[in-house]
Design a protein around this nucleic acid. Structure first.
Length: 617
DNA sequence: GTGCGCTGTCATATA
DNA sequence: ACTATATGACAGCGC
């Protein structure tokens, strides 16, 4: 038979050539193809992880916003209002958005009601009743503000959360001297985290503390002299703040928003004094990149057909360990069922033989079956150390392989499995050994002999016809040297030698084909496992992503609420709240919080938006 | 009768 | 060159 498609040959199995067969039987061959998809999946996983990682990193984004010197270079204050989309593209915008969900703001559009009162975050922080802080500090700082006022939420806890966020941000911020507005003496946690702006007439840079609790400023004179020399802004742009005794926080700022991102054009309940144009939020740049990443992540989720709602649902499902949205055909259970079917089919297919029970039992064991799965064959192979690819699993192994050599030794087992004698040349068939049907007595022995003859392989018949003086088992499995010795012991004709060589060749090739098919099945199984694993990993990563997004959203909401709270408590020298459309709070790299003009905040926010774009270019 | 899976075999490539 | 092994392809068999 001439083959015209030999070009399709893959070149066989490289590097496996002269390897002892036992190595194959031991299953040393690794399903190489399985590694390829795994690698691809790893890249995807890494990408996703990287996205999530960057999202966390971006929690400290907006480090440029703290670059005070850089901010100073922005002379042209852009009064242009930030549209909602622009705010959404920034961290603070998302924060405003998140806050809006808690307050009277459209959370999806990022529109929120601007806060109207400047406040010293540090002061507020210290003023918040805290079990950990000395009572004196509490009283000095926030007590006046909170006197008689029931905070709508636990400011302490809120601020602690905010502290954590700010610390994360501070880690990301370049705290070079030029960038630090105010230096704080080391060792002072309050000043370190929330160093106050100097209450100097030079730059009129107003600290929150001074704005709301000017009387306590002496407790926090932590600013280095050089700070005052910093041309932060025009004195006209920074207004001195006076302590405020206002306690109507809820009524006044219940719906206030964070500046910038926290200062959408919408006004809150006190919007009567915020009719001015929307200004960028100085706090906005703080969260810009994180917001961008979140949005991009959300987009990614949408692209992946994995919206947050579904993600949450999926998460719950995962929590309940209900599994993945894997195709049922790939699920282990289904696989098991398929195994069962395979087992049953194998058993049934071989039910005509005595090997049915052994085959069935072998299949029942997890993958301990293979070409030599039949117990008889296995035992024989073990006894003689014969060949036989010992498959790791039998899920797809419906092949009832019996080592022909073993069968030749034990002809009563040859009925197991197929008897492919179709290619046997009629002349080669030992028809003489088979009595004519008409003359055959129907005795049990004759029946058995006839049956065994039918179960004999083609080469068995040929060997018998050619009077080969040794078994096919030896012909096939003996080592070359022993095989040659065996041949030398007998005076064999050329036809006999040729047949023996063919028997040996075909016998070895038959086992090779069985092993090859088994390996192929193993490869398929491994690939399917890899697919399942990758699907599991993907689902897990998606679940983690949802968790990150959820956590991020909560943090933003907290920041937004705190911003509102702080800003709403700020009062100017006349005791009036600051308009969120004109002022905004801004975090600095060292943890300080400044009350700066809204225009400056907008300017900085825009610059923050540009930088990521430039970076991407 | 047909389709499908299993198996043996051949041809070829590779070690 | 020979041997062993691997593998695609083909074909027969049984279900």
């Amino acid at each position: 038979m001439t083959r015209l498609d030999r070009s399709s040959h893959s070149g066989g199995g490289p590097a496996k050539g002269s390897r002892p067969l036992n190595s194959l039987l031991a299953g040393h061959r690794v399903a190489q193809p399985s590694s390829a998809p795994g690698s691809r999946a790893s890249a995807q996983d890494i990408d996703l992880i990287d996205i999530l990682w960057r999202q966390d990193i971006d929690l400290g984004a907006g480090r440029e916003i703290f670059d005070y010197s850089h901010r100073q270079k922005e002379q042209d204050v852009d009064k242009e209002l930030q549209d909602g989309a622009e705010q959404e593209d920034t961290w603070p915008g998302e924060g405003a958005e998140a806050l809006a969900r808690n307050l009277l703001v459209d959370g999806e559009t990022g529109e929120s009601f601007p806060a109207q009162f400047p406040a010293d975050i540090a002061s507020l922080t210290e003023a918040v009743p805290s079990e950990r802080e000395p009572p004196g500090l509490q009283n000095n700082l926030l007590s006046p503000l909170l006197t008689g006022t029931e905070s709508p939420f636990d400011l302490e806890q809120q601020w602690q959360d905010l502290m954590s966020i700010m610390e994360m941000q501070a880690m990301e911020v370049n705290t070079s001297t030029s960038e630090i507005l105010y230096s704080a003496p080391p060792g002072d946690p309050l000043s370190t985290n929330y160093s106050l702006a100097p209450n100097t007439p030079i730059n009129q840079n107003v600290s929150l503390h001074q704005a709301s609790l000017g009387g306590c400023s002496q407790d926090f004179s932590l600013f280095s002299p050089e700070v005052e020399s910093l041309p932060v802004a025009d004195s006209s742009t920074l207004l001195p703040l006076v302590p405020s005794n206002s306690t109507n926080l809820n009524s006044t700022f219940g719906s206030t928003n964070l500046a910038g991102l926290f200062f959408p054009p919408q006004l809150n309940g006190t919007a009567n004094d915020t009719a001015g144009p929307e200004l960028p939020d100085p706090l906005g740049g703080l969260l810009d990149e994180a917001m961008l990443d979140e949005i991009s992540l959300m987009d990614l989720a949408i692209e992946e057909g994995f919206n947050p709602v579904q993600a949450s649902q999926l998460e719950e499902e995962f929590d309940s360990d209900s599994g993945l949205s894997l195709d049922s055909s790939h699920s282990p259970s289904s696989l098991s069922s398929s195994e069962g079917s395979s087992s049953s089919s194998s058993s049934s297919s071989s039910s005509s033989s005595s090997a049915s029970s052994s085959a069935s039992s072998s299949f029942s064991e997890e993958g301990a079956v293979g070409y030599s799965s039949d117990s008889e064959t296995l035992d024989l192979e073990e006894a003689e150390g014969a060949v036989g690819y010992q498959p790791e699993y039998s899920k797809f192994c419906r092949m009832s392989y019996q080592d022909p050599s073993q069968l030749s030794c034990l002809p009563y087992l040859e009925h197991v499995g197929h008897n492919h004698t179709y290619n046997m040349a009629p002349s080669a068939l030992d028809s003489a050994d088979l009595p004519p049907p008409g003359t055959l007595k129907k005795g049990s022995k004759e029946k058995q002999a006839d049956f065994l003859d039918k179960q004999m392989s083609r080469d068995e018949h040929r060997a018998r016809a050619m009077k080969i003086p040794f078994t096919n088992d030896k012909i096939i499995n003996l080592p070359v040297e022993e095989f040659n010795e065996l041949l030398s012991k007998y005076q064999l004709s050329e036809a006999q030698l040729s047949l023996i060589r063919d028997i040996r060749r075909r016998g070895k090739n038959k086992m090779a084909a069985q092993n090859c098919r088994k390996r192929k099945l193993d490869t398929i199984l491994n690939l399917e496992r890899d697919v399942e694993d990758l699907q599991r990993d993907k689902a897990r990563l998606l679940r983690e992503k949802v968790e990150f997004l959820r956590s991020l959203r909560q943090m933003k909401q907290k920041v937004q609420s705190l911003y509102q709270e702080v800003f709403g408590r700020l009062r100017d020298e006349n005791g009036r709240p600051y308009s969120p459309s004109q002022y905004a709070l801004q975090y600095t790299g060292d943890g300080s919080v400044l009350l700066i003009p809204r225009a400056l905040a907008d300017q900085q926010a825009r610059r923050q938006e540009r930088k990521p774009k430039d970076r991407r270019k």
